[in-house]
């Protein structure tokens, strides 16, 4: 008898099971409505002086993302002092030393207080690569500095 009523519930209820799909977005709701992400992967931060400009680089402790084009990309956020944002024309990031300003790498964009750069990472890393930061001033000055890529890479390598 009990078996029968359970079967009855199953027969009637099984077609409403797709309502469970509505649970999928639930865990993401709080994150969506807060101005800053709540659930963020651990972050790696490094301070570096590029000429007269103190710069903080930040990236998630995650391996680079594989783009549909096959490239590996790593996202960096670049903080410069609010007093400097109108002096800095561009911040460029590149794995390996740029040969000239034309090949300075990924140009950081977006919020001037927290610019963002998507840096191409070579498929094979020897472990001795360096991340080069180029800061170009509105007055024409160019400054460069570098740090070991391994210090600000993240993820398992």
């Amino acid at each position: 008898m009990r078996n029968d009523s359970m079967r009855h519930y199953w027969q009637r209820g099984k077609f409403h099971l797709s309502a469970l799909m509505m649970l999928v977005p639930l865990p993401f709701l709080p994150d969506y409505f807060s101005p800053k992400p709540i659930f963020v992967p651990p972050e790696i931060r490094r301070d570096i002086a590029v000429g007269p400009f103190p710069v903080t680089l930040a990236t998630y402790d995650e391996a680079p993302a594989r783009m549909p084009t096959g490239e590996r990309m790593k996202e960096y956020r670049i903080h410069i002092r609010p007093a400097d944002i109108d002096r800095v024309r561009g911040v460029f990031l590149r794995v390996g030393k740029p040969r000239s300003l034309r090949t300075a790498g990924a140009l950081a964009f977006g919020n001037p207080y927290e610019r963002e750069a998507d840096v191409t990472v070579p498929d094979e890393l020897g472990g001795r690569e360096e991340l080069w930061v180029t800061v170009e001033e509105w007055s024409g000055g160019v400054h460069q500095a570098s740090l070991p890529l391994g210090e600000i890479f993240g993820g398992k390598r």
């Binding site: 956020r77 609010p82 919020n111 207080y113 927290e114």
Partner: peptide, 28 residues
Amino acid sequence: PGGRVSSLSWGGSHMAVSARMAMPDGTS
């Protein structure tokens, strides 16, 4: 304070113009 407008958007005569701003803490 500190906001930098990155875009303006007009939604029609019945709507206020929305100005999207980049804020010093990295939010908008």
